[in-house]
Every structure is written in structure tokens, then in C-alpha cells.
Design a binder for these strands. Structure first.
Length: 268
DNA sequence: ATGGTAGGTACCCTA
């Protein structure tokens, strides 16, 4: 089973690039963030024609939005409001698999970016981001057990480890890598003992990124990346982890996203 | 220290 996550920053503008990523990476399940499309305008027909006939979509006009597409039928569990807003940032589905008694839970998250100022007093968007992550910790701990087969993935907008950013020292005060965010994300990780699949395969002392800003003249030359996108799994899936890959080549595609596709393969 | 780019929408917001 191959599962892809990609913040595509407008699904209507970049539906062709999503199809290209599908062709290259051959996923069975696709999770998208920042679709920026109301549900009635979501281009699900294009995906159905590419073999992704099953969809759970949760979008709004202009901002945010998440979606899960799959080749096989699944059960759409829910879409949740988070941190006091109805802004389309969290959905869950479940997939039946013969290896597990309980269905495999897949949660797709688009954590708020949090604005520019890393101060909860001065910046309500930063406070909202921290509340959102805290709420996710409570949600997972309250609703599920560590023995449940689960995946949580998406754009978490936090790069937790030193080598998840191009310069740990220079980014300590930059929203996405501040100690308070890293601590909150650690809390979410502890909620169910989530395993960070990227770091299962890539040693912690090795740089690994999923995002490069649009504001760099030459993203590849400067290589000021951050690892903002994640795929975490619970313990029952640990023995089934097969490979992890990103597609940095997609960062050079014409009119592309500032995030790149991330794929986890499970031996399922 | 600053400003750089992108998308959606409606003349500004968010990232």
C-alpha cells in the first residue's frame, strides 16, 4: 500500500500536477491539503478517470481544505471543526484490511501556518496554531488506543528536528521551528506513540525537507528547506513500514506547489 | 534588517 500526501495550494489550478505525481509515484491513496476549493467545485471527475473513484472532500472558498482520494472503496469517518473554527483542516477515513481486525484509520491534517510573529499575545494566528495541535493531542488520546492501526499525515506546518530545517540556529525564532511549537507537536506525537515514518528511514543527523519557499530565487541553489509535511503511523504498522520518499523534482515542475509530494509505502 | 513569490478573491487576505 502506497500513500501520498501533498499540500498542492489549489487543487483546481494544479489537478494536472496531482495526476503527474500519481503517474510518477503510483499511490493507492492520495491525501491533499490546501485544496482551496468548495466541495461543489472539486475536480473529482479528473481523479476518477485516473482510477481514483473514491473521494472524501472537505473544502471551502479561498482557503485551506483537505481531501482523500483512493482507488479502493473506503468509509469516510468524519470532518472535524478544530480550535473553534470551521475552516476545513481535518478529516478522517477508515480502510478495511485483512491484516487487522480493526479498520485502518487515516487522518489528514492541515495545521494552521500560524502567522509571522511567534508570540501568542501579539499574534492570534500563532495562538490558534498551538490550540489546534493541543486539540489534536486530546482528540487522539481520547478517541483511540496505541494498539489501533492508524496513519496521520499532512501539512503539520512544524519542522520538529534540528535537521528538519536548513539552519536550526537561524530558525529558532521563525514560526514552524520554535521550541513551543516543537513541544506541542511532541505532545501530539506522544498522544498515541506515533512513529515519524520519515525518520524511521532517514537518520536524524541527515537533512530532509518537504517545502521550499516561493520567495527564493533559486530554491535548489539556496536549499533553504523545511520538513513541514509528515506521515506518522501507530505501532501496529511499524513492522509494515517499507519505504519513504519525497519527490523534490516536483518542486521544479511548471507552476508547482511550494511543498513536494511525500510517499510512504507499507507492506500491506 | 528587509523583502522576496504565489493563489484566490475582490481591491486584501493567507501562506
Amino acid at each position: 500500500m502506497r500513500i501520498l500526501t501533498w499540500n498542492i495550494n489549489s487543487v483546481r489550478l494544479r489537478q494536472g500536477l496531482v495526476l503527474d505525481a500519481i503517474t510518477t509515484l503510483k499511490p493507492d491513496i492520495v491525501a491533499l491539503q490546501e485544496t482551496k476549493s468548495p466541495d461543489e467545485l472539486f475536480p473529482f471527475k479528473a481523479f476518477a478517470e485516473a482510477g481514483f473513484e473514491h473521494a472524501h472532500i472537505h473544502g471551502m472558498k479561498g482557503y485551506n481544505g483537505v481531501a482523500i482520494l483512493a482507488r479502493e472503496k473506503f468509509h469516510a469517518v468524519d470532518k472535524w471543526d478544530r480550535a473553534g473554527k470551521s475552516d476545513c483542516r481535518h478529516m478522517g477515513v477508515e480502510v478495511q484490511h485483512k491484516k487487522f481486525k480493526k479498520p485502518l484509520q487515516i487522518h489528514n491534517l492541515y495545521v494552521p501556518a500560524g502567522g509571522d510573529i511567534p508570540d501568542v499575545e501579539a499574534n492570534e494566528k500563532f495562538a490558534h496554531k498551538l490550540r489546534f495541535v493541543d486539540e489534536m493531542s486530546d482528540f487522539f488520546a481520547g478517541k483511540y488506543a496505541r494498539t489501533d492501526p492508524m496513519i496521520v499525515l499532512g501539512d503539520f506546518n512544524i519542522a520538529p528536528l534540528e535537521h528538519d530545517v536548513w539552519s536550526h540556529k537561524q530558525l529558532l525564532d521563525v514560526v514552524s521551528h520554535t521550541p513551543i511549537e516543537v513541544e506541542k507537536l511532541k505532545g501530539m506525537q506522544d498522544s498515541l506513540g506515533w512513529i515519524d515514518s520519515a525518520r524511521h528511514f532517514i537518520p536524524a543527523d541527515q537533512k530532509s525537507y518537504t517545502w521550499w519557499s516561493y520567495r527564493n530565487k533559486d530554491w535548489k541553489a539556496s536549499n533553504r528547506g523545511r520538513r513541514l509535511d509528515h506521515i506518522w503511523v501507530t505501532d501496529p504498522l511499524k513492522a509494515h513500514l517499507k519505504s519513504y520518499e519525497t519527490l523534490p523534482a516536483a518542486r521544479d515542475w511548471i507552476q508547482t506547489s511550494d511543498h513536494v509530494p511525500v510517499v510512504l509505502e507499507l507492506d500491506l
